[in-house]
Simulated scan of single mutants.
Amino acid sequence: MSAISSLEELVEAFRAAVTVKDRTYRLRRYKACFTGVDAVRTLIAIGAAVTIEEALTVGNDLVAHHVIEHVYGEHCLKNENLFYRFIEPDQAPMQRTLSPRQRAA
């Protein structure tokens, strides 16, 4: 494992290593996000996890600590091409954007 010994160190290393960029899906643009697959790969690459299962556990700890979230708050971290973003300190989790499904309801 790595020399990451605190949540703050993990967050700093993860932020520095994961590729955050604007992405488009079904003609909708999602700003400053990364995929679950990228998150899992990054967590393994920085030494926060050894296996995919460990990376998912660590990533879901980041979700639980309100560091990252699914762009619509609908999923825990999954090793899939779902979009996630960092929750900035001045933002409340899952209160910024409604999903198309939520808007239609």
Rank of each mutant, 00 (worst) to 15 (best):
I4S: 04
Y25G: 02
E74I: 03
T35D: 05
Q91K: 11
V20F: 08
V71K: 07
S5G: 14
A32T: 13
A45R: 09
T97F: 15
M94A: 09
S5Y: 15
A48S: 09
A32Q: 11
Q91D: 13
T24C: 02
Y25E: 12
I46H: 00
R101L: 14
T57Q: 11
Q91Y: 11
L98P: 10
R41V: 02
L7F: 11
V40H: 00
M94G: 00
Y30W: 02
G36H: 07
P93N: 07
L10F: 03
R101H: 12
K78P: 09
A45C: 01
S5F: 09
I44N: 01
A13G: 00
G47M: 03
E9L: 09
A92H: 05
T57M: 03
R29Y: 02
D22A: 09
Y84E: 09
I4G: 03
Q95Y: 04
A45M: 01
P89T: 13
D38W: 03
R15D: 10
Y25W: 07
K21T: 13
R29D: 08
I46T: 01
V71M: 10
P89C: 07
L7R: 14
I87Q: 12
Y25R: 13
L10S: 06
K78H: 12
Y25H: 11
T35Q: 02
E54T: 08
F86T: 12
R26K: 12
R96A: 05
Q102N: 07
F34H: 04
F86I: 12
S5V: 13
V63N: 06
T42V: 09
T24M: 05
D61N: 12
T42F: 04
V11E: 10
A16P: 08
S2V: 03
F86Y: 14
V11C: 01
E8V: 09
